[in-house]
Design a protein around this nucleic acid. Structure first.
Lengths: 248, 248
DNA sequence: GCTTGCGCTTGACGCAGCGTCAACGCCTAG
DNA sequence: CTAGGCGTTGACGCTGCGTCAAGCGCAAGC
């Protein structure tokens, strides 16, 4: 008994295009070809196809499927499946965490709509505190002059939102006890530094000083800690690590 | 203050290729071009880029990002984010379920390796019970003769494995109280019918009879019920639905 | 004999989000 | 004058097929 490509497709609830694709990449070759190059499939191919579809349903890639199916003993199969399972779990967890972050974003968006955006921004423009930084670290701040510029309302709002986003990310790391020198934290600090550079370009000492002000100054500390206790201190420590490693 | 493409790339920890891509698709156009067509970015573009990267980190597609960012009020933004969150949750759950299925597959693979595969297959070849089916539904089974053929050991193992997979899927549906006429169940039945066709081609009555035998015969019932109580009965009912709708 | 239609063939583009050459221009330092 | 560093615009590649497009062989109906 032989089947044509369309018959196999109907039986297996896939498309003929898929079968041709599997033929093209060598994953499932027909038993032979009839007149006109017509692909003919035998029982053996059907069995193979069923295994392929099972593994595909499990989420494996076609190359992984090929290696599993053509693997004689079960060793490689188990290893591939095990790795795949680990990937699935990690990816599932990642997406769940992302969903949580998206929810937070939605929440703050809803709340933030009522806030006056400039008020939100109030007490958060590092440039407004530059003078204080300068008082404490005069040499460091001396040549890092504030960039002047006229901010549009939209730019302003964008920058403010960005500040909130960063604070929330730091709060997440702090709550999760992620070390301050973790790559993810330091990546966020790099973004924070870039963000600060929109107003001002601190060097290592000044940036470290800004971090310390986040803890010392009531307004700053509240800004961070309202997303989670200890966030301001966490940010301060992370900034110190970043400054030591990346700034002049 | 302006930045070149490479400077922006370094600041934002992305590649210049990405920035050019965003320019090409209109997601982030430079503020202007200098001599030689050199892209120049201003502060406004940096702010926009930061928002883009935030949303990208949340897993949104570039087109969704564009619609969110260019959306003036917050209505559309919330809707897009809400849909995205729902998608994330669904996908996360799906992957987690898949991981469970993969684990089951690994388990059965480990156990199955010790079993003699023919013994596994024993008591599960529908053709072996064809005579009994024929006794009860003689007219129906009369013209559905068993396909002869020499089975290789590998074909045999593959078919056996396929049978186990199907049983497990049915057990999952039964445990989840999925109706027997649910599309997923009927899809599995279609695969089961196809699988049976590898040995034998029953018509509607014979297929229904085979299902009833799954309940009546101790060996069959155990085969299914060991994956979960009531699975055999569930399969029987599902097969009856399938036979009525799809078989001659 | 001719058309129509079905089922099959190969070939090619498109999708997301860039990575990765390739080939070339411009500017500066040695 | 040349090397090197930064910039430019193409164009192909990756996954897993969907979706035309153009054409062949065979059967039925005119």
């Amino acid at each position: 008994m032989s089947w044509t490509i369309a018959q196999v497709a109907r039986l297996s609830r896939i498309t003929t295009r898929t079968l041709r694709h599997y033929d093209a990449i060598g994953l499932l070759r027909p038993a032979g070809t009839g007149p006109g190059g017509v692909r003919m499939y035998e029982r053996e191919q059907l069995l193979r196809l069923q295994r392929i579809l099972l593994l595909r349903d499990l989420g494996l890639g076609l190359d992984a499927i090929a290696s599993v199916i053509d693997d004689q003993d079960r060793r490689g199969t188990r290893e591939v499946l095990g790795r795949h399972r680990a990937w699935l779990l990690a990816e599932s967890e990642r997406l769940a965490r992302l969903a949580g972050t998206v929810q937070l974003t939605i929440d703050e968006l809803s709340g933030g709509a009522q806030m006056d955006v400039e008020e939100l921004f109030e007490g958060f423009d590092p440039a407004r505190y530059e003078r204080e930084v300068e008082q404490r670290w005069p040499l460091a701040a001396a040549e890092s002059r504030r960039r002047t510029g006229d901010w549009s309302r939209r730019e302003f709002a964008g920058a403010a939102q960005r500040g909130v986003d960063l604070a929330r990310r730091f709060a997440g790391f702090a709550a999760g006890s992620v070390p301050v020198d973790d790559a993810r934290t330091q990546e966020a600090v790099a973004e924070h530094y870039q963000w600060v550079c929109l107003f001002w370009t601190p060097d290592a000492a000044a940036y470290r000083g800004l971090g310390e002000m986040y803890v010392a100054d009531e307004r700053f500390r509240q800004y961070y800690d309202k997303h989670g206790r200890g966030t301001a201190q966490y940010v301060c420590d992370a900034m110190a690590v970043y400054a030591a490693a990346n700034l002049p």
